[in-house]
Structure formats: structure tokens, C-alpha cells
């Protein structure tokens, strides 16, 4: 499975309060959450983001609370992949469970710039910056994680596994 899109780049320690501020947690509806995604550090994010776009950030992405709303908000915005040095433990787990693709790759996180066109292949873990021609190798996902992503998250995956 491949995704490609334009890059929105952020720094280190982007926390869940920045991704979706607590004042908007009164509803868990993805349509509501995407209206406020990243608004405290990037007001125009919601207007500029297009389906398929990619988020790139530094260390410890998603630190802070355990709210599942954070990866849900990013996914609902249309982001097809988040690339970072590394992710906070619970955010990592929640992202996979809600079906938001993420890749850990410090080289890509450092090399890719805001606005670059990037393509990533989940089968091989190869990330290509089409703007600069550079490519990076992230660890590819094992089969079952790809299946969780393809089913839109853990609930969809569990449903399909229970059917077989």
C-alpha cells in the first residue's frame, strides 16, 4: 500500500493537547475533531490540508494524555501518514488501533522539509521525497499491522479476523 502527499512539518514533543485541545473533547465525532486539529500551533492547518497529505515531526510525537481523540483528529483531517523520529507509547498504540498510519524514521524526519511532495510504501518501508529525490528506509510494518491499517483500525480488523 502506497500513500503520497504534501508535507506539513512540525517540531519535537508535539503533545496531544496541541493535536486536539482538551476544550474540544466534549465530542468524539471525527467531523468535529478535525475542525480543531493542530489549531493551537497552526491555525490554517485545517483549511490547507488535503486528503492524502503527510505530517512529519521530530521526537516524542503525541506525548501527554492517553486520549484516542488525537490520532482520530489527525486521521479525520485527511492525513495519510505521520512520520516522526519516535512516538509516545500510548499515542503509538492508539494510532494503530484507530487506523492512522505512522512510521518511525529519524533520517526522514530530519531530511524532509515543509511543503515537499513525499511518497511512502508501507510494504517496503521506503519513504521517497519526490521534491529532493532523496529516499529513506523506515522499518516496514508486519502483515497484521498492515491489515489493521487496511481495515481502518483494530475494531475493523478484529471484525474481519473473527469472520475467518
Amino acid at each position: 500500500m502506497k500513500v503520497s502527499g504534501k508535507v506539513f512539518k512540525y517540531g519535537d514533543n508535539i503533545d496531544t493537547d496541541v493535536i486536539i485541545p482538551a476544550r474540544h473533547l466534549t465530542s468524539a465525532d471525527p467531523e468535529h475533531l478535525k475542525e480543531h486539529c493542530m489549531e493551537d500551533i497552526d491555525k490554517s492547518f485545517k483549511d490547507r490540508v488535503k486528503p492524502g497529505d503527510i505530517m512529519v515531526a521530530g521526537k516524542n510525537f503525541g506525548c501527554g494524555s492517553s486520549r484516542e481523540h488525537a490520532p482520530v483528529a489527525i486521521k479525520a483531517s485527511g492525513i495519510s501518514l505521520v512520520i516522526a523520529n519516535d512516538f509516545a507509547r500510548i499515542f503509538y498504540r492508539n494510532s494503530i488501533n484507530v487506523g492512522l498510519p505512522i512510521l518511525e524514521c529519524p533520517e526522514a524526519a530530519a531530511g524532509i522539509k515543509e511543503g515537499d511532495e513525499v511518497e511512502a510504501d508501507f510494504d517496503t518501508g521506503v519513504i521517497t521525497d519526490k521534491t529532493t529525490g532523496e529516499s529513506f528506509q523506515a522499518k516496514a510494518f508486519p502483515e497484521f499491522i498492515k491489515n489493521i491499517m487496511a481495515s481502518g483500525g483494530l475494531v475493523g480488523y478484529t471484525e474481519s479476523e473473527l469472520r475467518v
Binding site: S66, E68, I90, Y92, R93, N94, I96, N97, V98, F144, I145, I148, L154, V155, Y157, T158, E161, L162
Partner: peptide, 19 residues
């Protein structure tokens, strides 16, 4: 420890994923 979505899916299948 895990979240409630994990708990639900684990109750159903008896498996879960780990890093």
C-alpha cells in the same frame, strides 16, 4: 495496561499486538 478499545478486541479474540 491498555485502553478500552484494546480490552474489547482482546475479549473477543484473546490476542493483541505489542511493540
Amino acid at each position: 495496561g491498555v485502553g478500552s478499545t484494546d480490552l474489547a478486541c482482546a475479549m473477543a479474540r484473546g490476542v493483541t499486538w505489542f511493540k
